[in-house]
Computed example of a mutant assay.
Amino acid sequence: MPLAATFAPPPARLRGKGDLTLVVGLGGDALAAARVIAVSADAGGEALVIADRRDALAARADGVRGEHPAVGAFSLPGVDAVPGLVTELAGIAPDQVWVAVDASRKTQDTAHWVQAVDAVLAVDGIAATGAALTASPDEVRGLGLPVLWLDAPPER
């Protein structure tokens, strides 16, 4: 099902002690985006790899002790991976969810996994990259979620 394009501003990064922001993406996209978000959220510039509930609890506890938010990355091995990872994703129970999207990838493939993640975790926004690698970067807005460009945003 196609989603309506949105030009809503991206949500503010969470800054509370132990607040957990999770960035979900394909392969290394998740960790790269999580690192940028961690800096913008004053999370000590550290992004953790989160694979399950235990990792999430540890990240939250570290954030509380360190008096900063926690930012974690959850890497998907492929566009069809979400159904097999529902238990792990749901168990993380993050406070905020971003999807790391490379705008130069096929929109249909991206929509497939983003919608699957959204069905499990209620995605708050897109952390987008790859604007310079495609002639149609704004197609990422067709995913129906607010977009935060982590590299140079497309010119309108």
Rank of each mutant, 00 (worst) to 15 (best):
V114S: 01
V147T: 01
A41R: 01
D62P: 00
A132Y: 03
W98R: 02
R105Q: 11
E155A: 14
R156G: 12
P146T: 05
D151V: 08
A119G: 14
P2H: 10
S75F: 05
V147D: 02
V123H: 06
R35L: 08
V82W: 00
D52K: 05
Q108V: 13
L133H: 10
L145W: 04
T87L: 07
E46Y: 09
H112R: 15
M1W: 13
L148W: 15
R15A: 12
P146C: 08
P153A: 07
D102Q: 09
P154E: 05
L143M: 09
V140E: 04
G28D: 15
D102T: 06
G78D: 15
A70R: 00
A30D: 08
P11G: 08
L26E: 08
P9D: 14
G45P: 06
V101P: 00
A132N: 05
V120D: 05
G27W: 09
G144S: 08
P11E: 07
S104A: 15
A33S: 13
R156H: 15
A43G: 13
A38R: 02
V82A: 06
P69V: 07
E139N: 11
A59R: 00
A47M: 06
V123Q: 04
V82D: 06
R53T: 11
G78N: 15
A30R: 10
R156C: 06
A56T: 00
L76W: 00
A127N: 06
G44H: 06
A152H: 12
A103N: 00
V86P: 01
G27K: 11
A5K: 12
A93D: 15
R65D: 12
D19Y: 06
P94M: 05
D118M: 09
A90D: 13
D102K: 03
W113R: 01
P146R: 04
H68C: 10
A119L: 11
R54Q: 13
L3W: 02
W113P: 00
A111I: 01
D62L: 07
A128K: 06
G72H: 03
L57M: 11
G63P: 04
G91A: 10
G44Y: 07
F74P: 00
R156K: 10
E46K: 06
T110Y: 03
E67H: 08
V123D: 02
T6H: 03
L14D: 08
A59H: 00
L57F: 08
A33P: 05
V99C: 13
V114H: 07
A32E: 14
G25P: 07
E88Y: 07
A59P: 04
W98K: 02
A58R: 12
V64Y: 01
A12I: 09
A12H: 14
W98G: 01
A4Y: 06
A5N: 10
A43F: 02
G28S: 15
T134Y: 05
P77L: 08
G16R: 14
T107N: 03
D62Q: 05
A132H: 03
A59G: 05
D42V: 04
R156W: 14
A103G: 07
P153Y: 02
T107L: 14
R15Y: 01
T21V: 10
K106L: 12
A131F: 03
R35Y: 02
Q108Y: 09
L89K: 04
D29C: 04
D138T: 11
D55L: 07
R15E: 13
A135N: 13
W98L: 03
